[in-house]
Amino acid sequence: MPIPEFVVALRSKIGHAPLPLTGVIAVVLDERNRVLLVRRSDNHEWALTTGCLEPGEQPADGALREVFEETGVQVTVERLLSAEALDLSVAPNGDQVHWLAIGLRCRLVDGDARVNDDESVEVGWFDPHAMPPLPPHQERCLTLALTDDADPWIAAPTAGHPNRPTESAR
């Protein structure tokens, strides 16, 4: 998978140290509410379409770009699903990333889904009730995407956070 040039430039300065990056998770639905998944080339697991935002790129633009790059389909963004800081991840080469993941519900506009780059080995539409396992944060995005009146999900403030009100102050 190609590493964005801005990440390569940052890594030349900070090495493998934790790097905060923003990514999008696109839950793509078709007219039958089937879910578009990609089988990743790095671990061969099924996943929603995800990707790193470029500096200054709007999340909706990043979702449109990532979905097209990975699957060859054009989508429209319907709504925000979630904003979540994920646990520290470590790439096989030792690079550490703190991802801020923004989930968006997208709807198919045009195109036939196919493997469109080297990030995946398979692409397919799945009935929401017959899905392969997904990581918990992607599962949460999927659940929210299939619930029309769901508010966007954000994690509750962490217990013990210095600015979190105590029970007595609520």
Rank of each mutant, 00 (worst) to 15 (best):
L108W: 03
L81C: 03
A159P: 01
A85L: 14
D87H: 13
E45Y: 12
G72S: 00
G23P: 02
P55Y: 06
R79L: 07
L134H: 01
A47H: 15
D117S: 05
T50L: 06
L108E: 06
A83G: 15
R107E: 14
M1A: 09
A85C: 12
A85M: 12
S120Q: 08
S12A: 15
D110P: 07
L88N: 06
R107T: 13
R65L: 05
N33L: 10
M1T: 09
F68H: 11
P128F: 05
L100I: 12
A145V: 03
I102R: 00
S89T: 11
V97S: 10
T71E: 02
A63P: 06
V67W: 04
E54F: 13
R140E: 07
G160A: 00
D42N: 12
H44G: 08
H137G: 01
C106V: 06
D42E: 14
A9T: 14
E84S: 09
A169R: 13
V90Y: 03
A145Q: 02
V75I: 12
S89G: 09
P132N: 04
R164C: 02
D42Y: 14
L53W: 01
P4R: 08
N163P: 03
A155P: 13
S168H: 14
V121Q: 07
L48M: 03
P4D: 11
I154L: 15
P135K: 10
T158I: 06
P18S: 12
M1E: 11
E122R: 09
A169T: 15
D42M: 10
T71A: 00
T50D: 05
T158F: 01
A47M: 15
D118F: 05
L36A: 06
V27H: 04
F6A: 05
V121G: 05
R114A: 13
T147P: 12
L36K: 04
D118H: 07
L29W: 01
A113V: 00
L64G: 03
G56F: 08
L48Y: 01
P165G: 02
V24R: 00
A47V: 06
L37C: 05
P92M: 06
G124A: 12
L80W: 08
R39S: 07
L144E: 01
V28W: 01
V38N: 05
V35T: 04
R105L: 08
L104I: 06
P152E: 09
D117Q: 01
L64A: 04
V75T: 05
R11T: 07
A47N: 13
Q96G: 05
E57D: 09
D127L: 12
M1D: 09
E78H: 07
L104G: 04
S41V: 05
L134T: 03
W125S: 00
W99D: 02
A155D: 15
P2N: 12
L134W: 03
L19I: 10
D110L: 14
C52S: 14
L108R: 04
R32Q: 15
N163V: 09
R107Y: 11
D87F: 10
G124H: 02
V27K: 00
P165D: 03
P128L: 01
D148A: 15
L81F: 04
T143Y: 08
K13A: 15
P152C: 12
V73C: 10
I14E: 03
A145I: 03
P136V: 03
A26C: 11
E69C: 04
G103V: 01
L21N: 04
D87K: 13
R79D: 04
